[in-house]
């Protein structure tokens, strides 16, 4: 262990009182309002699904585990949503809401109670989402995309080892319904798209958007999608509605295409390093079609 590592480790052993004092010093010291850092927090919703039995291989040093070690599946799972509450989780998607033109126009982070009161999203959280979730996860927020009063899309972020999620999803849905997955993100997002008449079109899990190769798609009814092979530059041009720039210095652009042709709504999502907005439809088409996972 070198000096820096030793010192870094040692700082994790400092007394509790020093840590809590530093946390609480925010805004209280020297008569000035402090800002912890510039990381913006926005309202989101927290939906918590607690695995019935999921044990962690712990050490006396909490959190000091690799992703691979931090979760150990005991084999018994259940999914219930007991709590949704406002949170400060900065869901990236709502930081740049669509402002004009086509596509969804409202991004919501409702509570469970609010969800239940939405007539056009009947029983979404208690019924729809758990039905399609791989079993046994902590579910830490839900985003909804609304187009007017119409529900378009719901995403929920899960907390678990990425490989655990994928493995269980494959068990549940069959590996032939998944595309290639790479990466080592420890949480993934899980989303459901459905038609405006309420029919489920697509369910997907999406990991880190680093390389644009990490989306897995479970197609409930592929025939109702614009199939990958049907995608054309023209469709992209007509349907490209938004380009979300959420951290260009680190991750490039997350680009989302909503293909809305009236009878169906399909959401393709991928990320690029660089300025996706500047790409032409042909270039975007080339990028999308170069992703092997999209072809499955």
């Amino acid at each position: 262990m070198n000096k820096n590592t030793l010192f870094s480790e040692a700082m994790s052993y400092i007394d509790d009182s020093l840590i809590t004092e530093s946390v609480r010093a925010d805004g209280q010291q020297n008569g000035k309002r402090g800002v912890f850092i510039s990381l913006a927090a926005s309202a989101a919703a927290v939906a918590v699904i607690i695995p019935v039995a999921m044990t962690a291989a712990r050490t006396a040093f909490p959190g000091g585990l690799s992703d691979a070690d931090s979760l150990s599946d005991t084999g018994t799972h259940g999914v219930t949503i007991d709590e949704v509450s406002p949170a400060t989780d900065p869901g990236f998607i709502d930081t740049d809401p669509p402002s004009e033109g086509k596509g969804p126009d409202v991004y919501l982070h409702p509570t469970v109670e609010e969800l239940r009161e939405m007539d056009n999203i009947p029983d979404l959280v208690p019924d729809l989402v758990p039905n399609y979730l791989p079993d046994g996860y902590v579910f830490n927020y839900v985003d909804l995309l609304m187009d007017g009063d119409d529900f378009l899309f719901c995403k929920a972020r899960l907390i678990d080892n990425r490989n655990n999620i994928i493995e269980r999803a494959e068990e549940k849905y069959g590996s032939d319904r998944f595309a290639a997955v790479s990466g080592n993100s420890s949480s993934i997002e899980f989303g459901i798209s459905r038609k405006r008449d309420g029919e489920v079109l697509e369910i997907y899990a999406d990991g880190s958007p680093f390389a644009g190769t990490e989306t897995i798609v479970i197609r409930e009814d592929y025939s109702q999608h614009i199939g990958f092979n049907e995608l054309t530059p023209e469709i992209i041009e007509e349907s490209r509605t938004e380009c979300f720039d959420y951290d260009p210095t680190m991750r490039g652009y997350l680009y989302e295409v909503f293909l809305d042709a009236g009878e169906y709504t399909v959401r393709y999502r991928y990320s690029l390093c660089g300025d996706a907005e500047a790409l032409s439809a042909e270039e975007l088409y080339s990028v999308i079609t170069s992703c092997e996972y999209m072809k499955k």
Binding site: D15, S17, I50, R58, P62, V138, N140, I159, D160, S186
Partner: peptide, 26 residues
């Protein structure tokens, strides 16, 4: 998110004197 899961799984049996410090340390 990982820290939340760790905390959920580790308390109990862990019983930290200061939850705030425990969470931040995690």
């Amino acid at each position: 998110s990982d820290a939340l899961l760790t905390v959920w799984n580790s308390i109990p049996p862990d019983s930290p004197g200061s939850f705030t410090a425990y969470l931040y340390r995690t």
